[in-house]
Amino acid sequence: MNSAISLDSIKKTLGSREVLRGISFTVATGDIFGYLGPNGAGKTTTIRILLGLLPASSGKLEVLGQDINRSETRKKIGFALDPTGLYDNMSATENLEYYARIYRVADATPKISRLLGMVGLADRAGDKAGTYSKGMKQRLALARAMVHSPEILVLDEPTAGVDPSGQIEIRQILLEIAHKEQKTIFLSSHNLDEVQRICNRIALIDRGEIKLYGELESLRHQMGKGGIVIETAQEISEAILAELKSLPQLGLQEHQGKHLYFSPPEEAEVSDIIGWLVSRGIKIDFAQRKEASLEEMYSSILKEVESR
């Protein structure tokens, strides 16, 4: 695995507060890496360290195998932060031209036009960025992040405060950037659904520590098989429900009318639960195994941390 970003035991202390407590993870080249965590967990501090805005108190950070403080390394990273840092009184084109100059991009005009087209702002290219909606500003920030053809994109909550249709547009653009432009994307987000849809690897940070890290699919597997949803043809009697609840091997979690949700232990199979219900004369309309969602993983880990 070629690593695009590698953090090894990074610690950061701000004043008397230890914001990052020795975090380590690697983002492989070509990854769409989701970086999750609640407010105040240390996401923004990590991003600032990644971009060389803050020095780490200790630990080792490498971006494409190089020190982030080198000017050459910085040229290989594009970023869209929150807030976006756009000049409100300049047009979209002028904002991109400005960054193209900073990065010494040769023959920037056709590239800027292409990028504005890619993020769907070609028809508003001459309008001041201050007149844009939040979603349009985020898309412009994405285009700006791409203006110097970086190898890595670091994005801090690119869909925060954007309406649902705007979020979909941004997600599509990110997928296009990752697949067509072959970029590595480091995406910090609160939006679990978004991360689940587009990221292949994730890290979950809480209180300055990495609580979960790896391939999304294998994490789902590690977190268990997920749940089993069963829909019965008739309402279940109180007696049967009481009996079900007394059987931990079946793992009944929720019950609402004809809907039952089981979270059985690893060794249990769907057939065991169905067999038990049928043996009690209950007809089954529908049964499905649901994989553990990112939301379930996220909340179970945070609950575990809180209970300590």
Binding site: G52, L81, P83, T84
Partner: peptide, 14 residues
């Protein structure tokens, strides 16, 4: 500062 313009410039090679 509030709009992140300074922070964005600092993240470039400037």
């Amino acid at each position: 500062k509030a709009k992140g313009i300074i922070q964005s410039l600092l993240a470039t090679p400037l």
